[in-house]
Write a protein that binds this DNA or RNA. Structure first.
Length: 356
DNA sequence: CCACCAGTAAACAATT
DNA sequence: TAATTGTTTACTGGTG
């Protein structure tokens, strides 16, 4: 992520982790150990707003008493354990998602632990940092590998990407600085990010055009002067959430944890590959609005896989859908916190609170 | 079986 | 004229 997650809300009432914990101490220690084994150190664990940052205080002795808290919140944000250490600091996800994504694979969860995590419906926040922390900075930096690597190429570059053409087009357009591309540039983006298409039969271009014409999510706008033949294509804001949801339905996540390293040597997609999103997310001048939230959701989907969108709480989907409708009705409370959390998830700390 | 969706192929017109 | 772009129709296969 580009910036350290903030979310220090509410201070740290749980600094003394000796008080009753909403998770078994054993589980917390195992999470800490496992995160450490992946080359990162667990800096902080947030459970239901309670921050645990002193793991030495946690012993294995008193698990049972920890579970007195009913329906604790669990949300996990840490580098997925078997993922290579990300170039960004903090990741967020749900505990179950992490289980799927191997973060907790090395943890021998007992049956009761599993039951516990099933029982836990809210969220734990795990904050990690690399052993050698990189400088953290919100200021946009030039892309290190501008548009060289796919957003974590699914399986490998020579197999057909598990994305529908509408998703490919969506990603291409969203990645464009002006969020508008001529069809030729859409071809180019797809080829650049999914080399499979370099040698694929030419019919796929027909499919792209077919999709642009037929899919109501895409709109043609007036061609820029000097552009030559053809028009610019944009994503209809009214349908952006539809595309995000379609992205979330893709059967294979874009991040294959066990996949071979990409040519850049990392498996995690780099949000910097998506200049528009990165710029929007890094822009500290303007208060975050619909674009930022949608950008955050998109980055989340691209970074962690579309399934992560399913892991978001219902409130997040409410925020996303409202953003898609250009409704800025954050009246404070849950939605507002969710909007902020969405940005945090994407690695952004809003300089200003979401406006209404 | 049916409806729906996505992918593919192809025909055709318009544009450069 | 050729290539590209955009639209439309038809068909196929997968899925719920």
């Amino acid at each position: 992520m580009m910036a350290p997650m903030r979310g220090e809300r509410g201070g740290s009432p749980a600094r003394g982790a000796r008080a009753s914990l909403p998770l078994p101490r054993r589980l917390i220690r195992q999470i800490a150990r496992h995160v450490a084994s992946s080359g990162r150190s667990l800096r902080r664990l947030e459970v239901s707003g309670r921050v645990i940052d002193n793991f030495d205080d946690i012993d294995d002795a008193s698990d049972e008493s920890d579970m007195e808290t009913s329906q604790p919140a669990v949300a996990c944000g840490g580098n997925a354990g078997n993922l290579p250490p990300a170039e960004h600091d903090d990741d967020l996800t749900s505990l179950s998602w992490l289980q799927d994504r191997n973060l907790l694979r090395g943890i021998n969860l007992t049956k009761s632990d599993m039951e516990d995590s099933k029982m836990i419906t809210s969220q734990v926040v795990v904050k990690t940092e690399p052993r050698t922390p990189p400088p953290t900075c919100r200021v946009p930096s030039p892309p290190r590998t501008p548009c060289k690597a796919p957003p974590s190429p699914p399986v490998n570059a020579h197999t057909k990407p598990p994305y529908s053409f509408s998703c490919l087009i969506f990603m291409a357009i969203e990645a464009a600085p002006a969020r508008a591309l001529p069809v030729k540039e859409i071809y180019a983006w797809i080829i650049r990010h999914f080399p499979y298409f370099k040698h694929a039969p030419q019919g796929w271009k027909n499919s792209v055009r077919h999709n642009l014409s037929l899919n109501k999510c895409f709109h043609k706008v007036a061609a820029a002067p000097g552009l030559g033949k053809g028009s610019l294509w944009t994503v209809d804001p009214q349908h952006r959430s539809t595309l995000l949801q379609a992205f979330g339905r893709q059967p294979v996540p874009p991040v294959e944890v066990e996949s071979e390293p990409t040519e850049t040597g990392k498996n995690t997609p780099d949000p910097q590959l998506f200049p528009y999103l990165a710029r929007r997310l890094a822009d500290t001048r303007a208060p975050p609005g619909a674009d930022e939230y949608l950008a955050a959701a998109t980055v989340l989907a691209m970074k962690y896989g579309p399934a992560v969108l399913d892991q978001l709480p219902p409130e997040a989907h409410l925020v996303i859908s409202r953003c898609a409708r250009d409704e800025h009705s954050y009246s404070g409370g849950e939605e507002r916190r969710t909007a902020e959390a969405l940005l945090n998830l994407a690695g952004v700390t809003p300089a200003h609170p979401p406006h209404s």
